[in-house]
Nucleic acid binder design. Structure first.
Lengths: 201, 201
DNA sequence: GTCTATATTAAGATAGAC
DNA sequence: GTCTATCTTAATATAGAC
């Protein structure tokens, strides 16, 4: 990311890299992160532990790669760029509900990495900024189009939308019968709706 | 709990118990939970480690006691029972922002304890239920009083309010310049406001 | 003042990190 | 394999009921 390799990665390396991330995703999602030794991941991939460290210098770095890959997939699955985030969040929630292990992994990591010296701190810091900014851009566009309330700044609505998303996820982790997508949809469509001009009082 | 003590706790024991919780609160809030040995807490209290284990069977149990005491205090500081939760949350947020360590401790623990076999799982499960129920009761009362929108069920609004609260806290952990209280106030007063009856369109 | 539950500690087993 | 932190067990000191 910082220094591009002078020769580029060999095809085999790229593939192995993906394979490790995929396996680590499964293992971390199933057995947790803290409690799991990289040995498990290495065994399932069919390589030595040292091979893992060749690709990812530390266990935390591998975790960050897993989370980044999750982001990339979510992004891909929900169609391209920044647009339409308000209506996309319920779908994201539905997808997350279908992957309890991975979703919990994200939640735990996001809370744990808040210490500034934590290895994944920068990742989450940037992620929150990017997600809120994206949402704000989308919301601002809708406000200009007249389909969203304008009595609060787009950034505030964006923060609240993202916050509700993460907060509902936490509640869902303790009660899997909760329908995050439904509640988020209520927020996005009903609460964010443009209030009618008052006719009296 | 199962067998009630035949004689009850001595005054000395009650006091020491409180002292341990207070010290553990400071230590965990400052140095974290995972990374901290109970030895540190014992030293600061001025007792042996085994004394800690006499009062709290496990480290997790001590953590749960710390979190419960935090709840009790927050409850006390904001005046009595369930009422007025909607307008109280911004104040809670302000109070939390003034205690970054303790707030982070709660956030990390709440995400970590979601596994059903985790020692603090039941505590958080009950807590979420109680907090959302309280909020829902308050919101329902305001809906009947005509001061809150009625186009969404009280429970949904309650879940969203609590979710926004926890979610904003997470964002704040990565950007301490965020004003959680202000955003929460916008949610509670503006978004939850009763929409006017439309006059046209 | 005696008695026994509770408070405290000492010593060591176990498990996990490095 | 070594080291450190968590937890157990058992034994001693002390508070407070009677």
């Amino acid at each position: 990311m910082l220094v591009p390799p002078s020769r580029g990665r060999y095809a085999k390396g790229v593939e192995r890299r993906e394979q490790i991330i995929q396996t680590a995703t499964d293992v971390f999602a199933t057995e947790g992160f803290e409690g799991t030794a990289l040995r498990r991941v290495a065994e399932l991939v069919g390589v030595r532990e040292s091979t893992l460290f060749h690709y990812f210098g530390t266990k935390q770095e591998l975790l960050t790669a897993v989370l980044e890959e999750r982001d990339r997939r979510a992004h891909r699955d929900l169609g391209g760029e920044g647009g339409d985030m308000v209506s996309a969040l319920p779908a994201v929630a539905r997808s997350n509900a279908a992957q309890p292990g991975l979703t919990t992994l994200y939640a735990v990591a996001s809370a744990t990495a808040s210490a500034t010296d934590h290895a994944s701190h920068e990742y989450f810091h940037n992620r929150f900024k990017a997600v809120v900014d994206n949402a704000a851009r989308d919301i601002a566009a809708r406000q200009e189009a007249g389909t969203l309330r304008t009595d609060l700044p787009a950034v505030v609505l964006a923060r609240l939308l993202v916050a509700a998303s993460d907060g509902l996820q936490l509640q869902w982790m303790y009660d899997k019968t909760l329908d995050m997508a439904r509640d988020l949809d209520s927020l996005a469509t009903t609460l964010f709706a443009r209030p009618a001009v008052p006719n009296n009082q």
